[in-house]
């Protein structure tokens, strides 16, 4: 019964983009008529190379690496937002992702309405959301500002609301990208305590962080990504040390 809840096998990701983007039909047709059938200068940007790992239920994984090494892409591939260019990814069950500030929010809606929208996107019905609602409101400490449109929220308010929603809905896997750094110290401590609590309940947590202390103190596994490849997967203390020496 120890089936991995997330499984990446030889995942590589290459982004294609067109410099001199011909994002109009007119440009393509005109170029074709001129004899230069060309969809623009095609550039490839390799972002991940042959990354494989399995995450078992109940693990608390810390993913570390420099900016731009591919950590967020890995999370987005796990969530299903991107598909790998080669390799496969298998995920069992619903995931609660928290990938960017205000992800899943519609900026014209109030925070309150966005709770329902976000929960619906994650796959939770009205009853489940209504049950979790008081806890979400309480944890976020937003009070009356919950009825303001989210386009007027500060980054700290956005992360408070987003984190509350992601952690209080009963998804077995929680994926958090680096957004926690935006909250104040009090909120960061509160978040870590909440994550610890969820971990003890048996939920699987994947946390992308730049903080070695968090990894050493809380995670039970550390994966270090460097330059598109996975260079370490194992003990959190060793991993955090490797990250620090890699970066400095």
């Amino acid at each position: 019964m120890n089936q991995p809840v997330v499984s990446l096998q030889n995942v590589s990701k290459v982004f294609q983009y067109w410099s001199d983007q011909p994002s109009s039909l007119k440009t393509v047709l005109v170029d074709t008529v001129r004899g230069r059938f060309n969809l623009g200068g095609r550039c490839s940007l390799p972002v991940l190379e042959d990354v494989s790992f399995d995450i078992r239920p109940g693990e608390f994984v810390g993913i570390m690496g420099r900016n731009g090494c591919g950590k967020s892409t890995i999370l987005k591939i796990i969530c299903g937002i991107y598909t790998p260019t080669t390799g496969s990814v298998k995920v069992k069950g619903p995931i609660a992702p928290l990938l960017e500030l205000g992800a899943g929010f519609h900026s014209d809606l109030s925070g309150y309405e966005n709770i329902f929208l976000n929960a619906a996107i994650l796959g939770f019905g009205r009853k489940a959301t209504a049950e979790a609602l008081p806890k979400i409101l309480d944890f976020s400490e937003l009070g009356d500002r919950i009825h303001m449109p989210t386009k007027n929220y500060s980054s700290g308010m956005l992360v408070r609301l987003g984190f509350s929603i992601a952690t209080h809905l009963a998804a077995p896997v929680l994926l958090v990208d680096e957004v926690l750094a935006v909250g104040d110290i009090g909120f960061q401590k509160k978040c870590l305590k909440k994550i610890e609590e969820l971990h003890r309940e048996g939920r699987t947590i994947v946390l992308v962080t730049h903080s070695p202390e968090n990894v050493r103190g809380h995670c039970n596994r550390c994966i270090v990504i460097s330059d598109r490849k996975k260079i370490f997967d194992g003990d959190p203390v060793e991993g955090a040390n490797l990250y620090v020496s890699n970066v400095s």
Partner: peptide, 9 residues
């Protein structure tokens, strides 16, 4: 675009 690129939908 804001929703599509940030959450699985």
């Amino acid at each position: 675009w804001g929703l599509i690129s940030k959450v699985p939908i």
